[in-house]
Each structure stands twice: as C-alpha cells, then as structure tokens.
Design a protein around this nucleic acid. Structure first.
Length: 434
RNA sequence: UCCCCAGUAGCUCAGUUGGCAGAGCAGGUGACUGUUAAUCACCGGGUCGCAUGUUCGAGUCAUGCCUGGGGAGCCA
C-alpha cells in the first residue's frame, strides 16, 4: 500500500474523485455538515462532510473522531476560495484506520516550552514544526549544492576523536576499548585541513558535540556544522566565500519557502531579501570603537558578548563580517596578521536581528615553526598534533576555511526565538528525551 | 560553575492580610448547512512539584531538595 495522491498535489485533480490518507488535524461541526482537516505531511486539506452525501453511520462517525485519528477519505476535489489551500474535498466516504487510544496531548491552544519539548515527537506534527523542518532540509540541501557546484569534495570527518581540536574542555568523553578515552568531535576542521591538502577544496557536514554547560537559546550539545576548507585561499578569499555561501543558502530558502515563512512562521522576509553580497566588513578594533561610542564599557581585548553582537549587527541590513580579532582570543591554528601580529586572520559572520554568530573561520597558520610555537604557547600536547604538523612538513600552503552552525542559520532564516525548534530532536544540557 | 524566574485540573493560568480548590481551553453529551483556535447548553475532571517546620488552620509563610525555563561565562 502506498498513497497514490498527496494533499500537495491536489490541484491537478480538480473535479475528480480521489482518496487521501492522513491524520485528523482538526474537526468542527455545524449541524448537517462537519469540517475535517486532513493532514498528510505534505499539506492540510479541509474535507467537508454533508449529511446527504454519506451514510448515516459515516456522518455520525465524522463528528466523533478525536484529533490525530488516522483516516482515509474518499471525495470530490473542489475549488473553493474560502480554503487557504484553494481546494477542499467533498467527502463521499471515510474509513478509520486507527483511533487514538488516548486523547492527543497537544491541542490547538498555546502550550509551554517544557511541555512541548517533552512531547517533541508529537509536536513535530504541528504545521509550524513541519515548516521549520522543511526549511532545515532545504538549508541542508542548499549547503551541499553550494559546495558541490563549486568543485568541493565532501570529506567526512570522524566523530570519535583522540583529543580536542581546540583544547580538552567542553568535550564529551567516551570509553574506547584498550585505548582509554575517546571524545566526540567538536569540529572536523583539522581533518579538513588534511583533506584540503589532498583534494584542494573540501567540506565536511555532520553532527558536532559540545559539552558546554550553556543554557541559552543559541546552544545545543549536539548540533550540525558544515566546515569548508580550501588550499591556496587567504582570509580575503575566505570572506568572499562566506558571503556568497550565506546569501546562496538564504536565497534558496526564499525561493522555495517564502509563502510558508510568511503565513505560518510570520517571518518578515524583506529582511532576508537584503542578504546579498557584499556584506559589510569591520575589524574587531573598529567594532570595539563603535561599541565604545554606543556606550558599552569594553576595551580592546574583551570578548564581544551577545548584547554587543546585537548592537553591532543592528547597524546593518545584512550579515556583518567582523575580522582580525585579538590573536589571544583565538585558537592556536589561526594565522596572525603579518601587518599586525597582535590580531589573527579570523572572521566571524554575525547574523542580523540579534541572531548572533552563525559563522566562525579564518586563515590557518601554514608555517611549521610558528605553529609549533603556538601549540606550546597554548599548553597543548605536541604529540597529539604530530599528524597535523605533518601537513606543514610536506608541501605546506596558505589555506583557510570556516564553520557554520546549521541550527543558528535555520533559527535566523525562520525567525525563531530558540535553536531547539530547528533540529528534530534537540539535545540540551537538561534534556535528552525524547 | 554562577545569577534570576517558575512549578495549582490533560494544557494555559488566576487564587486578596494564612480561612470551603477556581476560570478558559481540551474531553463527554446534545443543538446548529460554511467552520478556520466556531458558537451555545449541560456534564465529568485536583497527591496545589517533594519533604520538613511555624500555626487552631498552609496553594499562600520559612528552610531544604527536585524539575524546568531564561541568562552569564564559552561558543556555531
């Protein structure tokens, strides 16, 4: 058994008698007619049951079905301006596949966040969540298409790693046979550098784990990240790649989902339509001056916190690129600016509207001796990075890359308050079920 | 790890100086030929997060704990 027809394709069947399979999303009754909203995953269609068009048994049952009853409905496809879909089904027969054994926990009224997250497996059936998940799927495809179309090769990074890429804190530890401990990856970057030396332009795309005890709307312990890495690319090239990438992803989401973003998520898409290159660029030093003038008590060398990010980003109508952070704030592998070694050749992309950092990246240090000194300076065990240092021993070249968090990107594009809605089953500090 | 907030019906919440446990929605029964979170009538629904204490009496006050939410640090 496989449904021959889905709600999304109903327009092509106007005037025909069809059978649809799905779940009862909502029911309302008015005397001699009942209104059933049928949800099949591709859309929602209103099915109208007139008393005269069906048997008395079907008419009675149609008014006594609980929400989320699985049903198949046979009826005539009719055009109707009163329907948001443009069509409704004039019902001739209705078969119950399975009646819920208990009342469906999620009504059509408001619910609290904790309750919704406990019912996440059922919450996914809501129209809002299905739109968000479809946008996520489009973002994922747009990411892959962007790199595939530009000659990048997908190189999968390992999930078990022997040590931290950027230090040992914030890592999930797992036992690993006789070898002691392994850690869940928090970045595929070092492996992508190896990939770039082999294939030139590469990217990895997969889950990433951070044991940060962060309880904020921007954090998950398990999230998806795409990390391109390119040989013979400097920071300027990296920043051009970032802005082309972000605008491409946003453009593809708009092309496919503008209607849903507006009607279901109430997203102001005019703000997304501004997202075209070139993005504004300011140095960290300039950013500090801007923030100081805006009255933020910070000095050069301080981190740009969440509030500061929002102030900075709100000055522009598209994502802003902040580059050349103090070298001391950045990981050991960042290349320092030859013109000013106090700053690193790194760049963060801050999304507008308070969504914060969606991309972090930069140019890597390609010189062996400089990198060895940086590892020592950061107090990292050199043995763990011998394979990484080999990349500098055998034909090292300038290279750069970045990482983008999928969930923060989807939250921004959808205009969501919290990243937990952008992933099917969120993993957070205080929540691992369902 | 730290700071702030919340926990009362299936859900969202109200509950006055400490004095009989409440509403809306959801659910059930019925009315209604155009509902979009329909409307109307009636009905059922409680370990007030847990524990201890104060008190004649605690949903309400105190202490501790648990759970969740928001934020800081850190980060995508």
């Amino acid at each position: 058994m496989y449904p021959l027809l889905h709600v999304a394709d109903i327009a092509a069947h106007e005037g025909q008698e069809v059978t649809l399979h799905g779940w009862l999303h909502h029911r309302a009754s008015k005397g001699k007619l009942h209104f059933l909203k049928l949800r099949d995953g591709t859309g929602i269609i209103q099915c109208v049951v007139f008393k005269g068009n069906v048997t008395p048994e079907v008419f009675f049952e149609a008014d006594h079905l609980p929400q989320e009853t699985s049903i198949s409905v046979r009826g005539l496809v009719k055009k109707d301006q009163r329907s948001p879909l443009g069509y409704e089904l004039d019902v001739r027969d209705l078969t119950v596949i399975a009646r819920p054994s208990q009342e469906f926990p999620l009504g059509h009224k408001e619910h609290g966040v904790a309750f919704l997250m406990e019912q996440r497996h059922l919450w996914l059936r809501s129209q809002r969540q299905t739109v968000v998940l479809r946008v996520r799927a489009t973002v994922v495809k747009a990411i892959r298409d962007f790199f595939d179309e530009r000659g990048f090769t997908l190189v999968d990074a390992p999930i078990f790693t022997p040590a931290a890429c950027e230090g040992t804190s914030n890592l999930f530890e797992v036992p690993y046979f006789d070898l002691g401990k392994a850690y869940l990856t928090q970045s595929g970057q070092l492996y992508m550098e190896a990939g770039a030396m082999a294939l030139g332009k590469v990217y990895c795309f997969g889950p990433t784990f951070r044991a940060e005890k962060s309880k904020t709307r921007r954090h998950l312990t398990e999230f998806w990240m795409v990390e391109p890495e390119v040989a013979f690319m400097d920071l300027e090239g990296d920043m051009e790649l970032m802005e082309q990438f972000v605008s491409s992803v946003v453009g593809k989401v708009l092309a496919k989902h503008e209607q849903e973003l507006v009607t279901v998520l109430e997203r102001d898409v005019s703000k997304l339509k501004n997202v075209v290159p070139p993005f504004p660029r300011i140095t960290y030093t300039e950013a500090v001056e801007v923030l100081q003038k805006a009255g933020h008590p910070m000095k050069w060398g301080d981190d740009i916190g969440g509030d500061e990010e929002t102030v900075l980003a709100s000055a522009y109508d598209r994502p802003v690129m902040v580059h050349r952070y103090p070298a001391a704030m950045k990981a050991f592998y960042f290349k320092k600016d030859p013109k000013d070694p106090s700053v690193a050749l790194g760049c963060d992309v801050l999304a507008p509207e308070g969504y914060g950092e969606i991309i972090g990246g930069g140019q890597r240090e390609e010189d062996l001796a400089t990198l060895e000194a940086a590892i020592a300076h950061h107090g990292l065990p050199k043995e763990a990075f011998e394979w990484y240092l080999d990349l500098r021993r055998y034909g090292t070249v300038p290279h750069a890359g970045f990482g983008m968090g999928v969930e923060r990107c989807v939250a921004w594009v959808c205009g969501l308050h919290h990243v937990r809605e952008t992933i099917p089953f969120a993993r957070m500090m205080e929540r691992i079920t369902p």
